[in-house]
């Protein structure tokens, strides 16, 4: 154990459950609902996270419907980009013309532990 680290073993000492020197983790930062009222005319919306500037983030948007066109709802997608060092999450609806209602999405922002 040459390096300073937090290592967690199981009770038998036979398995390393966590090792702060080797592992990569995700931290919870925030979550918010994105629904049809949030989108602009192009069916997209961006969220900025200046408080997380300089850090890499991950974002997921979970929609409640399992099957887009079968249940008649458009499913949101998201993508992480960076404006300089500031994380920006771009949420959009795939189909820009369809008349189906837009499914609400739950956007979760997580911190990766990695600096930009």
């Amino acid at each position: 154990m040459a390096n300073p680290a937090i290592r967690v073993l199981n009770d038998a000492g036979s398995e390393v459950l966590f090792d702060s020197w080797t592992d990569d983790v995700l931290f919870f930062v925030a979550e918010q609902v994105v629904d049809s009222t949030n989108y602009d005319a192009n069916r997209q919306v961006t969220f900025s996270y200046p408080q997380l500037a300089g850090r890499k983030i991950m974002a997921y948007i979970d929609a409640p419907y399992g099957s887009g066109s079968i249940s008649g709802n458009l499913i949101p997608s998201c993508r992480v980009t960076y404006s300089g060092t500031m994380p920006v999450v771009f949420v959009f609806i795939d189909d820009t013309t369809g008349a189906y209602p837009i499914a609400p999405g739950l956007l979760t922002i997580m911190l990766s532990g990695v600096s930009l």
Binding site: A5, I6, S20, D24, V25, L26, F27, F28, S112
Partner: peptide, 19 residues
């Protein structure tokens, strides 16, 4: 703040982890 060998944050008091 604890970092791994590549400088990535792995334990911190600032953010909650997942179990």
């Amino acid at each position: 703040n604890v970092q791994n060998s590549r400088g990535h944050l792995t334990v911190t008091r600032d953010y909650v982890g997942y179990g």
